[in-house]
Design a protein around this nucleic acid. Sequence first.
DNA 1: TCGCCTTTGAAGACA
DNA 2: TGTCTTCAAAGGCGA
Length: 390
Amino acid sequence: MPQLNTGGGDDLGANDEMISFKDEGEQDEKIQENAFTERDLADLKSSLVNESEINQNTNAAVVRRGHQDEQRVYAEKHRELLDDVPKHQDGGMYKTPAYSGYPFLMLPDPYLPNGPVSPTANKVSVVQQPHGVHPLTSLLPYSNEHFSPSPPHLPADMSQKTGVHRHQSQDLSTFYPLTPGGVSQITPSMSWQSQSVYPLHSCGFRQSYTSSLPSSSSYSRFSHSLMLGSSGMHPTGIPHPAIVPPSGKQEHDQFDRNIKPHPEPKRDREPKKPVIKKPLNAFMLYMKEMRAKVIAECTLKESAAINQILGRRWHALTREEQAKYYELARKERQLHMQLYPSWSARDNYGKKKRRKREKQQDSTTGGKRNAFATFKEDSAPAPILPMEVL
DNA sequence: TCGCCTTTGAAGACA
DNA sequence: TGTCTTCAAAGGCGA
């Protein structure tokens, strides 16, 4: 598991993100990626025998056309902001043109050596974006149309909020002293494999993307009700996507409802105590971003199968690509901690029905279901491990 | 209507 | 300290 060792003892940046990998050169990674590509092509050829190529291409084309206009509008509106977006140089799926239609509203990064380090700077990161965009989603190539407009109304001083502070959030600038050198240590495990319960074909590996295909799946975390409704309002008055109705499944936002209108659920009428969800980790952020692409490419809808594909792609990412999501996840946690200082992951324990223990034991040989166990089982090279920072 | 599936990572619980 | 468990997203599917 990627861990970050800040040496400072704080939790947020204490044990995540920083990864130690095999000392693989970029050249090796490129070769590996080329191998994936070649295998993709081979798999794709074979898979096309069984799958409806026409449907796949047609569906993808239809979806792309459906979002072209929207993306073009945002491209014009926020083109100047793109300069601040971290650009990937591998020429893969993260080429900037692929997300040219998305707004990037870079926030001051308190972690960067030259970034703002004052508490004020930290507060900036939680300010609601003009279009109701989650402050952190602005760092991701999420489509702005995912989110409903919402006036910025965050308190100027987050530290004044009530609640028990889990950590010294006032000095978050000291968290995650991630450096470019540290990021460079992050590398994917190229030999990651897993047996797929779901049939996986070429979609299981990375491919080049020429367009971003936002879908409703990307919006749910920022549901309309959360952005505008009182049920999704933090006691401080801060709307945050982590606050969701306790009904379980998150509701689609306004944008999504415009696509697939449906009547208001009955449960909306009954005000219930909102549930603060866990902040998304790096892989979850990656899934939210890439799910639509996988769905469009593979014409899959089952999340279980999609997640398998995304898991394989995740391991195929370069260290820089993964580092981007680790960074975003770190900021997600930081923001979450600032917004809900008294929240604990324990609060949501028991929200979901616990799986039967015997079932988990059957699914995993060692009983531990995580990346580290997977790596060990597969005799893979060094897994993602804590990386010393500075 | 609810839980399962499936993935990785973070965090809490426990021995 | 190490191991294990739970939850986070997502949508189809079965009970």
